[in-house]
């Protein structure tokens, strides 16, 4: 049961924390949460399709389909989070010049649905393989329910915590969370790309397994929140840092564009 808790909690946290951050951020930008049902429906549908067609997906791209699709979804969400940072910074600096609602809501719906599709499919497959097929239904389902419940509770606290902040602070904090989450997603994507031999295999720069093992609860949670990797390679680390720089760059660009606009006035 404990392993079910940890695995499901990690998957749920990865998705829920990001979706709750987007909810708080979109609210701070003055948008209601009407996009959420659409994102949830698309996410459920995506997760179900991903799980059902997993075999076909795995066979695609010469047997590397699953790795490539997973990496693509992760990278797409990371890019959307960078776009989110641009929009949030722009709104925080100049609300009247804010992006059209369609852009903000589009980012929220797409990022949430893609994240849910991947995480949902992984949870579904885990529960199916270890619960239904291995005949451990009660244990796996209880563990999954507990993991999902804890993840959703933490998401609720995060959403209301962010909403309790002044709207501008909320946007800055959300952008900070999006930066770290996006980098974590890039780190995970590099793992899949490495498995698919798209990224070169390299020696690890260090091994922090003795400090925090990836398979430990802390390791799993750190991986979910920050993309923790105990043995990162140079390429992985570079891409992780590049992702953080891209997110910060998007925020800087938004500030510059606002300043230029004000200057023209």
């Amino acid at each position: 049961m404990i392993s079910a808790v940890i695995i499901v909690l990690r998957e749920v946290l990865e998705g829920v924390l990001m979706i709750c951050m987007l909810m708080a951020s979109a609210s701070a930008m003055g948008h209601r949460l009407r996009w959420l049902p659409a994102a949830l429906v698309l996410g459920f549908f995506g997760a179900f399709s991903y799980a059902v067609f997993l075999e076909q997906i795995s066979m695609a791209f010469d047997g590397l389909g699953q790795e490539i699709i997973s990496a693509s979804l992760l990278l797409a969400v990371a890019v959307l989070l960078i776009v989110h940072n641009f929009l949030a910074t722009r709104h925080a600096n100049l609300p009247e010049a804010s992006a059209p609602a369609l852009a903000v809501l589009g980012v929220c719906v797409a990022a949430s649905a893609m994240s849910m599709s991947r995480e949902g499919a992984e949870i579904y497959l885990y529960v199916y393989a270890f619960g239904v097929q291995a005949g451990e239904m009660a244990s796996v389902l209880s563990g999954a329910a507990i993991g999902a419940g804890i993840g959703l509770s933490l998401g609720t606290f995060m959403y209301y915590g962010l909403r309790a902040l002044p709207w501008r602070t909320c946007l800055w904090v959300s952008a900070g969370i999006a930066t770290v989450t996006g980098a974590g997603l890039v780190m995970q994507a590099t793992y899949y790309l490495g498995q698919a031999d798209i990224l070169p295999g390299q020696a690890a720069l260090w091994d922090s397994s003795s400090l925090v093992a990836e398979s430990s609860l802390t390791g799993e949670l750190l991986q979910a929140a920050l993309g923790y990797e105990a043995t990162p390679t140079a390429v992985q680390l570079s891409l992780y840092l590049a992702s953080i720089l891209a997110a910060l760059g998007a925020m800087a660009l938004a500030r510059v564009s606002v300043k230029t606009r004000e200057y023209r006035k």
């Binding site: 404990i2 808790v5 209601r32 804890i150 509770s153 609720t156 209301y160």
Partner: peptide
């Protein structure tokens, strides 16, 4: 915050859920 009712229901449920589930995990391990 758009609804006091939703806020109270969600936050209190989340607290109860978190506390009871963490207790359940601890109880399970012990």
């Amino acid at each position: 915050m758009t609804s006091i009712r939703i806020f109270l229901t969600l936050s209190v449920s989340a607290i109860i859920l978190l506390v009871s589930f963490l207790s359940a995990i601890r109880g399970y391990r012990e």
